[in-house]
Design a protein around this nucleic acid. Structure first.
Lengths: 204, 204
DNA sequence: ACCTGAACACCGTTCAAGT
DNA sequence: ACCTGAACACCGTTCAAGT
């Protein structure tokens, strides 16, 4: 607050003429970031829509390393937040996911998306070249002869850069394929003779 | 610090006779939590070992909601941290993962594990019965007629509890199956005639 | 060796006083 | 309507003084 005031050329106390408090500001910030994530709605297959959403979200979280933490520390009741959730679920429902299947798919995907950039050691420089420096530091921290497996990986990436985007899309592909498989499996099972499954209970 | 001192029946300043500072303490805490996660080494197939690790970690992060955030805000150079990474990689290497495949598998799995409990709305009470209260609050926050898809999910879980463990293991299964598939695909491709692939380059 | 009180440089926030 | 200075209740940390 004090720092923000300073940057605006204003005393911290004056901020309270414009916002209710720090929480208010952080909520607004979280919503702003959320609105940067793009969720295609028209003319897309669900898998493609989710892939594009995931990639867009990861980009945002890579640019603003604090963002993922901020968003899931706030609760999900702001308009922007609800609108976002609604858009994502809309895509899944339209693709035939049941209520619980959609909820699970959402949770699985977002766990991965939100967790990814947090896991990744902070890469100071560009995107593609990420990790090299971090790997070198880890390597330096490993005592001689200890932790050979960790050392092996650190040595690998101390040399060649780690392709962050490729790694993300590798995991994303796994998950999307898995969701599709379980969706098909779900409907196949339920479509057996004599079953008149409510669309609500197709999977899980 | 001041609060911690109070609980120990001591002034905050006295803490500095025992620890270097707050950062020191948080590092120790992160390592302590890490050591609670169990990574089976003997007589286990990699998939089983990773599944057990994941379930154990999720349990820890569910019990200590601050832990996942703490751990990935610290850097990975403490002994405990390195030992943990080393154990996990050892399992993967022994199962035939290449260096980069192991690194990717690790990153994908941990992104999911660390992201999961953060994503999940805080469930005040017990594990299995989680989410009901949260769902009701979300439902109450949705304006009439708006966000129909979000409302549909909220309505579902305002009634019946959300099975957190089942949801986690659903996603975990997807990812492990996907990793296995890509591992097999990897070795199949490289084992073609005339190829003498280094074990280091089997996948990705 | 360990504790204490006082102080320092910080926070976010409130509020009476100014314009 | 918006800003300011002063103050309040907090932080983590330092350090001379005590035992």
């Amino acid at each position: 607050m004090r720092e923000l005031g300073r940057r605006l050329g204003i005393k911290a106390a004056s901020l309270y003429n414009h916002i209710a408090g720090k929480d208010d500001l952080l909520d607004a910030l979280a919503n702003l970031v959320l609105s940067e994530i793009d969720v295609p709605l028209e003319n897309v297959e669900w898998k493609d829509a989710m892939r594009r959403r995931a990639i867009s979200a990861r980009g945002v979280f890579a640019r603003h390393r604090w963002a993922a933490g901020l968003i899931d520390s706030r609760d999900r009741r702001g308009r922007e937040s609800l609108a976002y959730v609604d858009r994502v679920l809309r895509v899944l429902f339209r693709a035939g996911f049941s209520t619980s299947a959609a909820a699970n798919a959402f949770l699985v995907l977002d766990s991965y998306i939100y967790g990814f950039e947090r896991q990744r050691p902070a890469a100071p420089a560009g995107e593609k070249a990420g990790g090299t420096e971090a790997a070198r530091e880890v390597l330096a921290a490993i005592p001689d002869g200890e932790f050979p497996f960790a050392a092996r990986v650190a040595r690998e990436y101390a040399g060649k850069p780690f392709d962050v985007e490729a790694a993300f899309e590798f995991g994303l592909g796994l998950i999307l394929d898995g969701l599709e498989r379980s969706r098909e499996r779900g409907s196949r099972i339920r479509r057996g003779p004599g079953t008149d499954a409510a669309p609500d209970a197709r999977i899980l």
